[in-house]
Write a protein that binds this DNA or RNA. Structure first.
Length: 485
RNA sequence: GGCGGCGUACCCAAGUGGCUAAGGGAGCAGUCUGCAACACUGCCAUCCAGCGGUUCGAAUCCGCUCGCCGCCUCCA
């Protein structure tokens, strides 16, 4: 039994064996920071965050890097539109990106290189490729000659000749082959640029990832991740550059790619205007609900976003925390209690097996919800029998379930908030003043004591119309914001 | 045209050769409750797009058909 991962290179699930036992070198393509982060960025970030967390949980010593592409055509174009410097735009978006991802519980990768901070390596790699005959200079540009490689296309399964047949007309007829890609681009007027042996210019898109990867992790890494759309040409070109420069194959042992997010069944795109920004999504949903929604699907499958599905995710999270709160209050089990190791292990085993199977987070969530039902059943039975009805065995099991949530939640990056504070956070800015709600609850309590249920119901309905939901339970009445927004 | 993926109940979604096809939401019937909500219990796919094939045995492997989608151009 061990971890298996789906490798895009072989198109199969393979046993995961890093080059060096116990150590994992992992690189993920980060965002090009020209605009705020959207749900697609979130999917990639969350997917690889879980992979990172789980590898560590499994005892690997993980060196993890995720880059920011901070110089690029789109950044320059956007900065010009806004009339600000492209460097400033990039910096602002990096800060916003980290903040948005943080709200989704994404850990900050320990190594976060930027293209602009890797210029020396980029130039040196391009020179190296020229001297080895894999690249050529053309009027201040430098191109990689893909015909020099017999195995170009191995990651994406492309046949170069078929690609050529279907390729669009390339304006740049100077290149030796239409598929040759730029390692270095000569600067145009007013663009940010760096000195190089070929004059002022800036790097092409693909070379920066090769350089950052090799600079921080070495010539061969274990995991390289990114969205499925990056397979061609970006990752294909990274392989070409890196393997040609070092002569070492493979550059990457396991290529992992996450699937897309569709919005109401169609691909998210600027032309359709259906980009869902994380910042906007966070206005009406907790970050945890968004994360839960993403993890309810396997990371390689396409996921279809809708307001409805996000709402369901929020309800599921709430159910989880309500159960945890019940375990604390009714079960009298302390949050930090540590149960017998064997008992925990028994419940953890199927969860670990699901994660070992190419990070099946959706399967894990299914298993966790079985435990939620189990915990509620124990508590219901105890309640029906009186508090004394909670046997030592039952209490132990609740302790195990809590520990299970803590452990699985640790690598899912879910359920990490204290239950009481999660349940309270949604009350931060209620449409009705908290004091007024409390006052009405008190008034309703008196009415109920006097069996004036008509009045009691009027109060409850009145609050409901204003977006406040009341729930009676043994210990009194609690209120919450109506989930249906 | 080339390459790849997907099609599991009303909706979302695990499962990829072998006990009764996870889990969530919705719905229905109960328990609890003054009522409601929450929670719990039961019901809800003899069947996994369709048709063939391999096998003692397939949702899971193979072939074909239909439908949907992605990549081949910047894209997470």
């Amino acid at each position: 039994m061990g971890l298996k991962v789906f490798n895009s290179l072989s198109r199969k699930k393979e046993d995961f064996l890093p080059a060096e036992k116990g150590k994992v070198k992992m690189y993920v393509c980060g965002p090009t920071v020209y605009a705020p982060a959207h749900i697609g960025h979130a999917r990639s970030a969350v997917s690889f965050d879980v992979i990172y967390r789980y590898l560590r949980y499994r005892g690997f010593d993980v060196t993890y890097a995720r880059n920011y592409t901070d110089v690029d055509d789109k950044i320059i174009a956007r900065a010009n539109e806004l009339g600000i410097e492209s460097g400033k735009l990039a910096e602002d978006n990096i800060v916003a990106f980290d903040s948005d991802m943080g709200a989704l519980g994404v850990l900050l990768p320990p190594i976060r290189p930027k293209a602009t901070e890797t210029m020396a390596e980029i130039i040196s790699l391009a020179e190296d490729l020229i001297s080895k005959g894999f690249a050529y200079e053309l009027e201040g540009d430098v191109y990689f000659a893909i015909r020099k490689l017999s195995d170009y296309g191995k990651l994406s399964g492309k046949n170069i000749d078929n690609l050529e047949a279907g390729a669009r007309v390339d304006v740049d007829t100077r290149k030796r082959d239409p598929l040759d890609f730029a390692l270095w681009k000569a600067a145009k007027e007013g663009e940010p640029s760096w000195e190089s042996p070929w004059g002022k210019g800036r790097p092409g898109w693909h070379i920066e990832c090769s350089c950052m990867c090799m600079k921080w992790l070495g010539s061969t890494i274990d995991i390289h991740g990114g969205g499925k759309d990056l397979i061609f040409p970006h990752h294909e070109n990274e392989i070409a550059q890196s393997e040609s420069a070092t002569g070492l194959k493979p550059f990457v042992r396991y290529w992992l790619h996450n699937g897309f997010v569709n919005i109401d069944k169609v691909k998210m795109s600027k032309s359709l205007g259906n980009i869902l920004n994380i910042h906007d999504a966070l206005e009406t949903n907790t970050g945890e609900a968004i994360r839960f929604f993403l993890l309810s699907n396997h990371y390689r499958s396409p996921v279809d976003y809708s307001a409805e599905s996000l709402k369901e995710a929020g309800a599921a999270i709430e159910r989880f925390y309500k159960t945890v709160e019940r375990i604390h209050l009714e079960g009298q089990v302390a949050p930090e209690s540590s149960p017998a190791a064997e008992a925990l292990q028994k419940k953890m085993t199927p969860i670990v097996e699901a994660m070992d199977d190419d990070f099946n987070t959706a399967g894990v969530i299914g298993l966790l919800f079985k435990e939620i039902t189990r915990a509620n059943r124990i508590l219901d039975e105890a309640r029906d029998a009186g508090v004394e009805g909670l046997s030592a065995d039952n209490r132990d099991e609740l302790g195990v379930i809590l520990a299970l949530f803590r452990e699985a939640g640790g690598f899912l990056g879910l359920f990490t908030t204290e239950a009481e504070s999660y349940l309270n956070q949604r009350k931060a800015s209620p449409p009705v003043k908290a004091e007024e709600i409390e006052r009405l609850i008190e008034e309703r309590k008196k009415a109920r004591q006097n069996k004036d249920f008509k009045k009691a119901d009027e109060i409850r309905m009145g609050l409901l119309e204003r977006g406040i939901e009341l729930e009676d339970n043994r210990d009194g009445t609690r209120w919450s914001l109506k989930t249906d927004i």
